[in-house]
Computed example of a mutant assay.
Amino acid sequence: MSKTLHHGLLLLRVLSEQPQGLTVSELADAISVHRTVAHRLVRTLEAHELCRRDHQRRIVLGTGLVSLAEPVQQDLRTLARPILDELAESTRATAHLLVRDGAARMRALMVVEPRGALVHVSFRPGQTHSIEQGSGGVAVLAHGPHREGERPEVSEARAKGYAVTTGEVIPAVTGISAAVPARDRTATASIGISVFEYTDLGQLGTTVAAAARSLGRLLD
């Protein structure tokens, strides 16, 4: 194994968990290398636009990671499209695929609106919000282990297999989401629907959870 590459990848992982950025010295401590080594790693990653310095000279992730992730996300969108189409039509609600964006945010990767519905929720792919808010983020957090001080909604989602929140991302809109399980039993994505009103929350939750499992099997 290449020690230099290993340290570079560790550095990127640390930065993904620290959206506010870190100094070179803090990075050196985080990956257990000398400050000079951390400085060289940062300079190399900067040259490839994988990290950058913000206005406070702290090191944060760079835009080059978006280009690297795009082919993977394109595959994910391709696999998710028919599942979201079916989910939107069967529930008559706007269906969405969200992905974890760093340590603290969720980003809408795909949004599918139901055909012919008189009223539905509308929002654009690319929108982001805190992972602690909205059913998509709650579902992803619920797929992980219990955390001290976690929201009751996370514990409830862990028990039910799907998360429900109201008015946290869009006012007066209820989100119902389930985590997309990965092969390693983690989850960095969720499938869900957004509705103004509903009659059978349990049935909607079951339908959403089944859609998330279907995408998980395709990704396995």
Rank of each mutant, 00 (worst) to 15 (best):
H6P: 00
H6G: 08
G8W: 06
L11Y: 00
L12G: 04
L12Q: 08
L12F: 09
R13I: 12
R13E: 15
R13G: 11
S16R: 08
S16C: 08
P19W: 14
P19I: 13
Q20P: 01
Q20I: 11
Q20R: 15
Q20H: 14
G21E: 09
G21P: 06
L22F: 01
V24K: 11
V24T: 15
V24F: 00
V24W: 01
S25H: 10
S25A: 15
E26L: 02
L27S: 06
L27I: 13
A28Q: 08
D29K: 14
A30I: 11
A30K: 10
I31A: 09
I31T: 09
I31Q: 06
S32Y: 02
H34F: 05
H34E: 15
H34M: 12
T36C: 01
A38V: 02
R40H: 12
L41G: 05
L41S: 03
V42Y: 03
V42F: 04
R43Q: 13
T44M: 09
T44V: 08
E46K: 14
E46W: 09
H48G: 10
E49N: 13
L50Y: 13
C51S: 08
R53E: 08
R53W: 06
R53N: 03
R53G: 02
H55W: 08
G62A: 13
T63N: 08
G64S: 14
G64P: 07
L65K: 05
S67R: 13
L68P: 03
L68I: 14
P71S: 12
P71M: 12
Q73D: 10
Q73R: 04
Q74C: 02
Q74A: 10
Q74P: 00
R77E: 11
A80K: 04
R81D: 13
P82K: 10
I83E: 02
L84I: 07
D85Y: 01
E86V: 07
E86H: 10
E86A: 15
A88L: 05
E89D: 15
S90F: 01
T91A: 01
A93D: 04
A93Q: 11
T94F: 05
T94W: 03
T94Q: 07
A95W: 01
A95L: 03
H96A: 13
H96D: 02
L97R: 03
L98Y: 05
G102A: 08
A103H: 10
A104I: 02
R105K: 12
R105P: 00
M106G: 08
L109A: 06
L109C: 05
M110G: 00
M110D: 14
V111W: 00
V112N: 03
V112M: 10
E113P: 00
P114T: 09
P114I: 07
A117Y: 05
A117T: 10
L118I: 10
L118Y: 02
